Amino acid sequence: MSRTLSLLLSFLLVLSLGIYLLYNGGLIVWLGTASWYQGAFLLISLLAGLGIHLGSRVLKRNPLWEQGNESLYIILFLLIWGILSGYSYLLEFLVNDVLKESIAENGRGLVLKGSVVGLILAIIIVWINYSWIAYAQFSKKTIQHLRNERNKEELQYKLLRSQLTPHFLFNSLNTASNLIATNPDQAESFIRKLAYNFKHLIKNGIQPLNSLEQELKIVENYMHLMKVRYGDKVILENRIKSEALDHQLPALAIQLLVENALKHNVASQEHPLKITITADRDKVVVNNSITRKPEQIPSIGIGLNNLKARYKLYGKQQISIQESQACFYVNLPFIFPGLAE
């Protein structure tokens, strides 16, 4: 609302109260007796309207106003009621001071009437302001919630698409083909694990959150496939406390970090890649040893940035990354949906 419109509405509010009080007291003819009376009446109405306008603007500039702070609304209520009561007193004083005593008898109840009407008007105005802010907050939260849900679905889709890359399937089928010729029993186990892995990727990848226990099962199945390719060059070690198994993480978060470790390092018999997963009641820590980096690292743009973005949608907790000469650490705080913003 513009300043001019706000001032005009405040002035009209006060002016309407003044006309009502004079009409109710049978004093409306007083305004037509002399231009001086009319000027004084308009002046005190303008001053009262200006007081309400300026006072309300000061309150609405406070950052807490948009948050529905109750104390500011109480101050607004007292401001409006006080100014309207004071205006009624000035109006009664003006009437009694300039009119004949026989006529002025009708003006001695203006203060009481003005205070009662001012009280009602103050309640209505504060209620309208508070309801408007409450509705605006509700609308903002609803829109933000819908936007977050849409972003979560988009990030989940991108993550799932990254897990189902043709490159991974091509390598897995080549490995299965070689095993069929050299070790049929292992080939059968590998193919079953591959099918199981894709089944769980599709099932759990579309869920926004998984329990730590589910995440570990996905990683263990994935590492079974990787063991066939890498053998003892890759070592996975879990140090998980049982009380943490039911806590939740963004879907496929741990597998993403394990894949990154394999992708950004070259494992060998002399320098095996060791991946360690630890968890307590607050977080999961995935760390891997740093070996020689591959010369070319193919990427489709899905990784830590996706994980950071998904965490951001669930609240203030964020992943933290630490790197030393020998190890790379990623801390994943657990997400508790009831506490998430």
Rank of each mutant, 00 (worst) to 15 (best):
K227Q: 14
R161T: 13
D280W: 05
N306K: 03
G301L: 04
K241F: 05
L194R: 03
Y314M: 14
F93D: 11
E101V: 11
S189M: 12
P333F: 00
P184M: 04
Q248W: 07
K233V: 00
E66V: 10
N148A: 11
S177I: 10
F41V: 02
V330E: 08
V117D: 02
N62H: 15
Q317K: 15
A251S: 15
N178P: 01
K316I: 15
V266E: 06
L91V: 03
A34K: 09
H200A: 09
A34P: 00
V95F: 12
Y130D: 08
T165V: 07
Y130T: 07
G114M: 00
E154G: 08
G82T: 11
T165K: 11
V29K: 12
F93T: 09
G107I: 00
Q318R: 13
I75K: 13
Y130P: 02
G25S: 13
G205S: 05
L273N: 03
I28V: 08
C327D: 10
F336W: 04
I133H: 06
R292L: 09
A251I: 04
T33S: 14
A261D: 05
A279I: 01
E153T: 10
V285K: 12
S45C: 13
L257I: 01
N331L: 11
F328R: 04
L169I: 15
K283F: 08
A122V: 06
Y37M: 11
V95S: 12
G107L: 03
V330Y: 04
P298H: 08
I120C: 08
L22I: 06
Y89M: 08
N171E: 03
I80S: 11
G39M: 13
W127D: 14
L332A: 05
Q186E: 15
K100H: 11
T33M: 15
I133G: 02
I128S: 05
L256Q: 14
A244S: 15
I124Q: 06
W36L: 14
S88F: 07
L273S: 02
Y130V: 08
E220L: 15
E323S: 12
I74N: 12
S189P: 06
F41Y: 12
S211W: 01
M223Y: 03
V219L: 03
L169C: 09
I235T: 07
L273A: 01
Q255L: 10
E259H: 02
Y73D: 02
S16N: 10
V228P: 03
K227Y: 07
G231A: 00
N148Q: 09
F336G: 02
C327G: 05
L22D: 05
R57C: 09
V116Y: 09
K158H: 08
A34H: 13
E154P: 06
I180T: 09
I143H: 13
K152M: 12
K100M: 09
I319P: 00
V258A: 04
S172W: 01
L64R: 10
